[in-house]
Amino acid sequence: MSNNKLTVIDREGSTHDLEWEPDQTLMEALRDNDLPVLASCGGTASCATCHVFLEKEVFDTLAERSEDELELLAEAEGYQECGSRLSCQLDFSQDLDGVTVTLAPEE
């Protein structure tokens, strides 16, 4: 599998173009490319420090959020019902090639 292209808008509004590798979750792709994603729980949907916004059209193609993920997100700053995800819960998929993700505000 080839890498996905990924566009990230950081908290200052700057755009970064990254490669998203097949063995990375979205959180890992962000973190390993030096974007300021704390991900303090290491990817177990516990801490919500890897919160991102997806475009609604992309969001709608994804599987439902787990109850834990939803409960953490619902209390997060800037929560979007049809856009907020924990990036640690998103595995690589070729369907996600070329997507744009926006880092949620830090709390």
Partner: peptide, 11 residues
């Protein structure tokens, strides 16, 4: 068995 209070609590 639920995380709804977790983030508000931290804040």
């Amino acid at each position: 068995a639920g995380l709804a209070d977790f983030r508000p609590a931290k804040k």
